[in-house]
């Protein structure tokens, strides 16, 4: 057994759509490789614009999608070999997700604590007394700055986006995972609450859990992550230490991305927005017209 928690090895994903005659092949993820070390928990930011394949990559790591080519090995288990329900449960205990829209992360018709108790029961029933499960849930909620009292008997619409995202993190923590995959976890959280969620990731990492933080927001990625992958059109264009890559990007695309960040400062405000609209046409954005 190696020391790798996650080994993504030359993974590609090709979707084909259309009818029998005019099949279109779309390469969502193109030959992506990276590793996460088991001994050194880290926050790995995956940066990309919409359509860059970052969500597909997440879904493959969560075993919701199988790669077309390449291998994904989590903690010594090749995800392609998972067949039985028991194996799937094992994997889901090890890799937990956090989603983009906190308001849609929980069934609007069900109470919130239901998911916490389910996660606790299904993944850790063997190791714990039923009486202590309540305490464990309370503990997990305390880790994210909430308590069971605040959450129990509440429906999702009664909590704010920030609170819901905290509950989602607490739920993921309850399974005692080794890896958390967070797909745009703060893009729908209010600005005043966003940073406290981001700060939580650091706490989670210090608990020994690695996090894959998928985002398009370079500023929070710089703020929180240890390592960074920049993805464009399905392949990695630049990777390395987060601070170094974002401060001194090498690839032109990364430089372009960094320069497009609108800072809430006046230092680079206003003056550099071209008032004559030259350069409006030439974007890297693919036009969908055939």
């Amino acid at each position: 057994m190696s020391d790798l928690l996650l080994d993504v090895c030359h993974v590609s994903k090709i979707f084909s759509r259309g009818g029998l005659l005019s099949r279109q092949r779309i390469t969502a993820v193109d030959d992506v490789s990276f590793q996460i070390d088991k001994r050194r928990p880290e926050i790995l930011a995956v940066i990309g614009e919409s359509g860059s394949g970052k969500t597909t990559l997440c879904r493959m790591i969560l075993n919701l999608e199988l790669p077309t080519t390449g291998r994904l090995v989590f903690d010594g288990v090749d995800l392609a070999t998972i067949r039985t329900a028991a194996d799937r449960m094992m994997l889901r205990q090890g890799v937990q997700p956090i989603f983009q829209n906190p308001f849609d992360s929980f069934n609007p018709m069900k109470r919130l604590e239901r998911y916490l108790f389910l996660t606790q029961r299904r993944f850790l029933a063997a190791t714990q007394q039923p009486a202590s499960s309540k305490a464990a849930i309370d503990d997990a909620l305390h880790q994210v700055g909430l308590s069971l009292k605040e959450v129990s008997h509440r429906y999702p619409h009664e909590l704010s986006g920030g609170q819901l995202q905290r509950v989602a993190i607490a739920r993921a923590l309850l399974a005692r995972p080794k890896l958390i995959v967070a797909d745009e976890p703060v893009s729908m959280v209010d600005a005043s609450l966003r940073l406290s969620i981001v700060n939580l990731f650091r706490t989670v990492r210090d608990l020994g859990i690695s996090i894959i933080y998928v985002t398009h927001d370079l500023a929070t990625a710089y703020y929180i992550s240890d390592r960074i992958l920049v993805i464009r059109n399905g392949s990695i264009v630049e990777s390395g230490d987060a601070k170094a890559v974002l401060k001194y990007p090498q690839h032109p695309y990364c430089r372009q991305l960094r320069d497009a960040v609108l800072l809430p400062d006046l230092a680079n405000a206003a003056a550099d927005v071209p008032i004559s609209m030259t350069g409006v046409k030439g974007t890297g954005e693919p036009d969908r017209r055939p």
Binding site: M89, N101, L118, T119, A175
Partner: peptide, 14 residues
């Protein structure tokens, strides 16, 4: 396609 289905799945539901 909604996220709560995934949450249920990763809460260990069949």
């Amino acid at each position: 396609a909604r996220e709560f289905t995934q949450t249920s799945l990763f809460s260990g539901m069949s």
